[in-house]
Design a protein around this nucleic acid. Sequence first.
DNA 1: CGCTGCGTTGAGCTTCTTCAACGATCGTGG
DNA 2: CCACGATCGTTGAAGAAGCTCAACGCAGCG
Lengths: 235, 235
Amino acid sequence: MPLAVNEILQSCFLFKGLSGSYIEQLKTIGKLKSFNKKEAIFFEGEPAKGFYIVVSGKVKIFKLSSEGREQILHIFAQGEPFGEAAAFADMPYPANAAAMENSQAFYIPRTGFERLLKENPSLSLNLLAILSKRLMIFARMIGDLSLKEVPGRLATYLLISSAQKGGTNSLSLDLTKTQLASLLGTIPETLSRILSRMQKAGIIEVHGADITIKNRGELQKISGLTQDDVGLTIS
Amino acid sequence: MPLAVNEILQSCFLFKGLSGSYIEQLKTIGKLKSFNKKEAIFFEGEPAKGFYIVVSGKVKIFKLSSEGREQILHIFAQGEPFGEAAAFADMPYPANAAAMENSQAFYIPRTGFERLLKENPSLSLNLLAILSKRLMIFARMIGDLSLKEVPGRLATYLLISSAQKGGTNSLSLDLTKTQLASLLGTIPETLSRILSRMQKAGIIEVHGADITIKNRGELQKISGLTQDDVGLTIS
DNA sequence: CGCTGCGTTGAGCTTCTTCAACGATCGTGG
DNA sequence: CCACGATCGTTGAAGAAGCTCAACGCAGCG
């Protein structure tokens, strides 16, 4: 069991270039935690005493409105850190985190991490790269939420997903449609209607979680993306 | 003239803790640029060969929709860096930048900056702090755009502005209302209507760019913020 | 003095959400 | 192994929020 954790910590981007002895240290200053599906990991506003790295499963970071609607900010899978910006800045978490499946995450307290950070310049460069990338993802999200309608945001999502899978026209959602709606800043009903409208228009074909792109050009027009954009957005 | 620039570079957060000799180096690897009001500084999609630090004036970072609507992501004033995340990650700028007034900005090319970064651990820690803070601002923006209606976003803006000015009830907007609309993710017409609706309801009083908070409790209810939130959000 | 950009207001319309109902699926406990 | 409940997904009808288009007053500036 600890073996697997070792490998994941070693292979994750954040710790790239970190010497083996530091990985060993990590294991002593942090610890592995398990979370059941839907279990909360931390809450918005809670002081960030540390951060996590996904070891297995999937974790969502999300905000809740006063009426209980949810906006997913990010979904993290194996090897990705979350909560690290708040932990580093020693501020409250800006959003909630919860396990989307039964998951494991390696918890690293702020204090121990700070020491590593100061002793390891490459670690802060890695962290900078991660935060930069995330900042750009958020910038795109803000633009999309404000400037595009739901069909445009869905089209953007489909095109980027397709690009990430190497450009196939056959996608398989790895989220429920309800969760996708929450990620796109809308509700399941609206998403459902738009999916079926796009299907009727011959742009896509939907079978459960499997979506096939039938008319890429039209999808691009709806998304407002250029060919270049699609390529560049591959995280 | 170069004297003033020196002082601004020295006093800005990014270079806090940097020795004087490095500041001198900075001045040789970068250069001061001037921009007229409304002049573009860089465009979305353009490769980020470097970044800027505001020396005087005000700069907006914004996205444009395909129909030309604008969403302001951030407004930067003296001493604040912009474009640094893209420059660091060596990616295209994720948004446009333009001067809101006649402005000056100190331009630092990526290559020179990278060297400084590697030689100066404190510099990367400063940069990490800046990016972390920005990430949290963006997280709030995403939540607001998706989960709050325009009155809620306006109320949030007013309360945060008030808190930043020490809690006064008398605010003076340092943007035009059109720009405020763009920052809140709406259009001038909608903002205008909501301002006058809030005034009729006795919540605020508006005289041109001067806004007085008349009923803080009600404003907080509309914003969806708790008392704590307001305090914490003071950048 | 006229032009341009900002701000306001009205009318109409689009988009999206809300509320409600219902079928399908899946995991669980009897 | 089946039955039940919970969650998910879909569809319809109605309503709300915000956008578009248009007109107009106003201030600042060349």
